[in-house]
Amino acid sequence: MPDDTVVTVAAGWGVLAAVLLCALAVFAVALDAVLSARAQGAGGGWAAPLSRAARLLRQRRRTTVAADTLLWRAGGAGMFVGAFLMVAVIPLGRWTLSDLSVGVVWFNAVDVMVWALVWLVGWGANSTHSLVGGYRFLAHGLAYELPLMFALVAPAIAAGSLRVADVAAAQDDLWFVVWMPVAFVVYLIGVMGFSVWGPFAPALASDIAGGVLAELSGVDRLVFLAGRYMFLAAGAAFSVPLFLGGGAGPVLPGWAWVLVKTVAVLAVLVWLRRKVPLMRPDRFMEIGWILLLPAAVVQDLVVSLIVVWEG
């Protein structure tokens, strides 16, 4: 077992955290492109992050009539910045940027920001399709957010702390994923939700001409899409201290295990996009409230009972 004490590193190391997050996002883009290419019987795709970014950087910015530019740009830039805020509380082995006593709530507050950000991007363009996309996302949000919140509660109850490092340290004996699998699954659904990913992509779907993305072009589109992949990566990274034992593992040091587990979860999330159908917001509303929410609450109850039982 690695040492449980967590060291708060100087803020300058945030640059390294940002670089790691960007690298994870690039990996997610590349993996998605490779899987797409393979599904169509072609090879390659690993260069996709580079070629797509280069294309978007060269693209001219599209303007629309009476666009609310302030809110439009704020939404896109917020997606990019938000993911960095999220990783600030994730310990990398025994180092963390911020050993916040309520790190789990911090994560939750940042993921709720996405509600506002995606809607703002949809609103800003003054385009019907964009706005419909924004509202589709909000409808999804209403369905996935509460189950996600109750899924976050389970590890916090078991650890008796909202500090992310404490939650990771509480899994010395047994990873939380083993005895709270429902919370883990609901959490991953929530991560796909706030990343507008996989089944939650109708906000960006082609039946409404790209939805929120419809009028986004050039660097604005690049920033929004990068933010989306980074949120997916940050969500995968947060699952490691929350459910997967943090930096626990044989041979390798803690930081390496955190990265290995993050990459594994991220790869599964990227792979799932092609395996799970798009969820219509009206349909998913009932799944969220009638299946996922009670399941998460029962999971919390079971965890609470076990915690009380073991005293």
């Binding site: 506002a116 509202y135 909000l138 209403l142």
Partner: peptide, 24 residues
């Protein structure tokens, strides 16, 4: 008051997003 501060931010952002739903 980290918890109260974060909860205030969380609740208010969510509330404003929901307000956008009611708006329409």
């Amino acid at each position: 008051q980290s918890y109260l501060g974060l909860i205030t931010i969380l609740m208010m952002v969510m509330e404003m997003a929901v307000m956008a739903v009611y708006m329409v």
